[in-house]
């Protein structure tokens, strides 16, 4: 006959053994689950990044094609009409019939000539083939010349180091970003001076665009022009981040705005 304490002891041992066994299974399941979840999160993050890259690529392509189309339409339709109008005015000017109105006719002719010149500059600015053929430095320089020709702004463009291409895709993104920064400055900053400086380093590409405008305060979202500009700047930061670069913004009320972009040369290949 077994004594009572032995039975209790046996039950306790059995119960404890069972419990320990299940604790071991519990811990094993948790550890395996966490390991798999870490792998899943990594995969999800990678997929999200690839998806964002694909979306950006499509956005740039659509934007490029649209701009190209607009450029072609401007050149083929508006450009042609302005050229024809100029030809007619030249005929009238050379005929010398309307001597009283010669001043107005010459003025109109000059305005049309200027419009044609601006239209050509604008068309080149919209056409990414220009970027492909002449490179980032030429394209940005060309953009600044176009702005300077309005006689409203003074522009400054500095290039340090030997220029190289970041790859056509990256060049297009950077160029469009610079265009957007300059447009923001023109529309919202009330600046007079616009400056762009590019540094082509061995490992790092740096671009800084600044203006001497009114600047802005991030904590004031009520201004609709500011919020549009803010949305554009966030878009710029997002696009540069997708290229693996960084975009920093420095702006203070009355002190102008400075946007600095940094890209690794390795990541752009």
């Amino acid at each position: 006959m077994h004594s009572y304490p032995e039975e209790i002891l046996f039950s306790i041992i059995l119960g404890t053994a069972l419990l320990l066994f299940f604790v071991a299974i519990f811990v094993f399941v948790i550890l395996k689950f966490q390991k798999n979840q870490f792998r899943n999160r990594l995969q999800q993050s990678q997929m999200q990044k690839e998806y964002d890259q694909a979306i950006l690529h499509v956005q740039i392509e659509v934007q490029d094609k649209t701009m190209q189309r607009i450029g072609e339409e401007l050149h083929d339709n508006i450009g042609q009409l302005l050229s024809v109008a100029r030809i007619h005015l030249n005929v009238v000017e050379e005929s010398g019939i309307h001597e009283d109105n010669m001043g107005a006719i010459k003025e109109a002719n000059s305005l049309i000539e200027k419009s044609l010149g601006d239209l050509r500059l604008l068309t080149k600015s919209l056409d990414s083939d220009f970027l492909k053929d002449f490179g980032l430095v030429e394209s940005i320089g060309h953009e600044l010349v176009r702005i300077k020709n309005t006689k409203i702004f003074r522009t400054d463009f500095k290039v340090h180091g030997d220029p190289y291409s970041l790859g056509l895709h990256h060049d297009i993104v950077v160029f469009r970003v610079v265009q957007e920064i300059l447009q923001n400055s023109i529309k919202h900053s009330k600046a007079k001076d616009l400056a762009v400086a590019i540094t082509f380093g061995d490992q790092i590409f740096q671009l800084a665009a600044e203006d001497n405008g009114c600047g802005f305060d991030f904590s004031e979202p009520s201004d609709s022009a500011l919020s549009q500009s803010g949305a554009g700047l966030r878009n710029i930061q997002r696009r540069i981040a997708l290229l693996g670069g960084t975009c920093s913004l420095d702006s203070r009320i009355g002190r102008g705005t400075r946007v600095a972009i940094t890209l690794s040369r390795k990541m752009s290949k």
Binding site: H2, I8, F10, S11
Partner: peptide, 9 residues
């Protein structure tokens, strides 16, 4: 007896 004690588990 053992059986009855075991039923604690």
């Amino acid at each position: 007896k053992m059986r009855d004690t075991l039923m604690i588990v």
